[in-house]
Each structure stands twice: as C-alpha cells, then as structure tokens.
Design a protein around this nucleic acid. Structure first.
Length: 333
DNA sequence: ATGGTTTTTACTGCGTC
DNA sequence: GACGCGGTAAAAACCAT
C-alpha cells in the first residue's frame, strides 16, 4: 500500500520535472548553440556553447573549453509567453536630456488611434483637452519649467559647437544636480546651462574654450566664468586641466592638415610633457603651437595667423610655445 | 588686495615674393 | 608694398594666497 503511493508520487514528480525542464526550450530556443568551426582539443568532438552557464563544452567528452563568458540574456526564466511578458522589464531607455527623463506621458498630435484610424470629432476634442492638461501637469512647477528651458539651451549650444551626445548627457546631469542643490537662485538659467556644458565638455575630454562657449551662449564671459567656478566648487566636480592633445584633432581638421601633422603634434606635446613645460601654460596655446610646429616639420606649412585664428590664441603665444616645443624635441631625440 | 606668472597688445625690423 | 615671421616692452588677465 505504502509502496504504491510512493511510486505514484515519484512518477508525478518526474513528470512535473520533465514538463518544467522541457518547456523552456520552447520559449527560449538559443540556450545551446553549436560551434561548427571549433572542435574539442581532447577528443575532437563538436563543441557547444551553453550561454546559461557561460561555458563552451564538448558535446562528446564534456570538457569545458571556455568559462566565464558573459551571459547577455535575462537572469530570469519564463515558462510561457505570459510569464515572459510579466518578468520582462525592458522598455524605452531613459535619458537625462529630457527634463522628465523621457518617462512622462506623451499624447501624439495626430488625431489617430492606435490602429491609425481617424478619431471622431468628439474624441478629437477630448484628446485636445487631454493634451492641454497633460502639458500643464508635465511642466507644473517652476523647477520643471526651468529644467526644460535649460536643457533646450544646452542642446542648442551643444549643436552649435558640434559636441557629441554624451557631452549633452553629462551637461544635463550637471545642470540637474545644480538645480537639486538650489544653486540656481541669483543666477541666470543661461549662465548655469553654459557653465554646465563647459564643464561637461571638459570632463568628457572634448573641451571647448571659454571663447567658443560664449560665442554661442547668451551670457558674457564674466558671468560664465563666475558661474562655472561656483558650480564646480559647490558640486565638487573634479575637472583636470584640459589636455592639450584633446584640442589637436579639431585644429588639424579645421586647417585641413594631414594625419601626419596630427601625429607629429601629439608627439611634440608628449615631448613637451616629458620636458615639463606644459604646467602653467594654456593648453590651447600648447596645442596650437604643436600643430603649427608639426605642420612645418611635415612640409604642410600653415601660417601662424591661420593657426591663431582657429585656436583663438595670439600669434605671440604660438611663437613662444613652438620654440619651446622644438627645443624639447631636440632633447628627447 | 597682492604679487607672480602667463597671455595679449602694439610696434619694429628683417627677409621674401 | 604686402606678407610672414621673430623679437620686445608694456598692459592686461589670471591665479593662488
């Protein structure tokens, strides 16, 4: 009696286990991939990658060839489609470039439903009212409105300066922090936005000079530098002095010079670094001088005034620096 | 506020095209 | 003569104290 009961429950368990283990195959098909072009070093049997355990295993002898590969799949398992819907938690990416991180409700302007059909006139009126209120709630308080405007400004200036998206992201984060720490009162949105972008550009290694910044900003350099200092002090941002090399590519391309010049300029700067003559000198001046000197060495001469033009630095500074750089190169060589 | 350092401004002389 | 370049002196800007 007891024997039979045990046996039936055993059988049930086995069946259950089988059903559990067999269903995932149906949902996620790529748990084991065959590696056609590779064979096992031991028995030359075919290899399979087990993405769940991050291993590459021989199908015949079981030898583990590679371990710790990255499993890019989800950490959960789903046994049917509805579970997959439930457990999956991916969605649209958030971005700091929008004042609400792109997470708020957005009602489209087309008067179409989800199937693309036009709405009835009463529905249209309803949607229009919803749009109005949605917009009011979305930019309800002053901070939100402030942020919205500032991010618009950052975007505009970044475009004008040809700064990539990651810089805008960084600038947005900085601005958001400044706003959170109540650094704004007494300062203009423009000023803080400009300072944020300037700081972000330097942090991400694609610096723009203060001159360039104020050229596209609506604030003057006094306010800009004052705000910038304030921001980095209050937010404790650590900004290293700009590396002269980070200016080189832009100058080179603005002057239509070759890669050889760019390489030469970098080497000159490196030699100058070894000789210890970079500290205290303006990075822009160094970069401009290095580009000028490299253009001479590569027989692609550009004039000092041309370089001073694109670098917005005086010719005198270029002269002084490039002499020093060439001397340092002599020593290094 | 101050002093030291760096950059800019303005000017000059030289050589070349 | 215009231009590029090198140099200088003085003014201005910048930075740490």
């Amino acid at each position: 009696m007891s024997d039979t009961t045990i046996r039936t429950s055993d059988a049930e368990q086995t069946r259950e286990r089988q059903s559990i283990e067999s269903t995932p195959e149906a949902v996620s098909t790529d748990e084991q991939e065959a590696n056609e072009n590779e064979v096992c070093p031991e028995c030359s049997g075919s290899l399979v990658t087990d993405s769940e355990h991050g291993e590459t295993v021989c199908r015949d002898c079981g030898l583990v060839v590679e371990e710790n590969e990255i499993d890019r799949g989800p950490e959960w398992r789903a046994f049917n489609a509805s579970e997959k819907d439930n457990k999956s938690r991916v969605g649209a990416p958030t971005t700091n470039m929008m004042h609400d991180k792109g997470l708020s409700t957005n009602i489209g302007w087309q008067d179409k439903d989800a199937y693309g059909r036009s709405l009835s006139s009463s529905q249209r009126e309803k949607m229009q009212r919803l749009r109005t209120w949605n917009e009011r709630f979305r930019t309800r308080n002053s901070k939100e409105r402030n942020l919205k405007q500032a991010l618009g400004e950052i975007d505009r200036m970044a475009s004008a300066l040809g700064l990539p998206e990651n810089v805008r992201e960084t600038a947005s984060v900085i601005y958001r922090r400044a706003l959170d720490e109540d650094l704004l009162p007494g300062r203009s949105i423009e000023g803080v936005a400009t300072a944020s972008l300037y700081a972000a550009a330097r942090q991400t290694g694609t610096p723009r000079s203060i001159d360039e910044m104020i050229a596209v900003s609506r604030v003057d350099d006094m306010e800009m530098t004052r705000t910038y200092r304030y921001i980095i002090r209050e937010l404790k941002l650590e900004i290293k002095p700009a590396d002269p090399e980070s200016y080189v590519p832009r100058f080179v391309s603005d002057l239509d010079l070759s890669e050889e010049v760019e390489r030469g300029a970098r080497e000159l700067i490196e030699d100058g670094r070894q000789a210890g003559l970079l500290s205290g000198k303006s990075p822009v001046g160094l970069a401009a001088a290095a580009v000028y000197a490299a253009s001479l060495l590569a027989n692609e001469k550009v004039t000092q005034s041309e370089v001073s033009e694109v670098a917005s630095i005086s010719e005198v500074t270029i002269r002084n620096r490039y002499k020093e750089l060439l001397e340092a190169k002599q020593v290094a060589a």
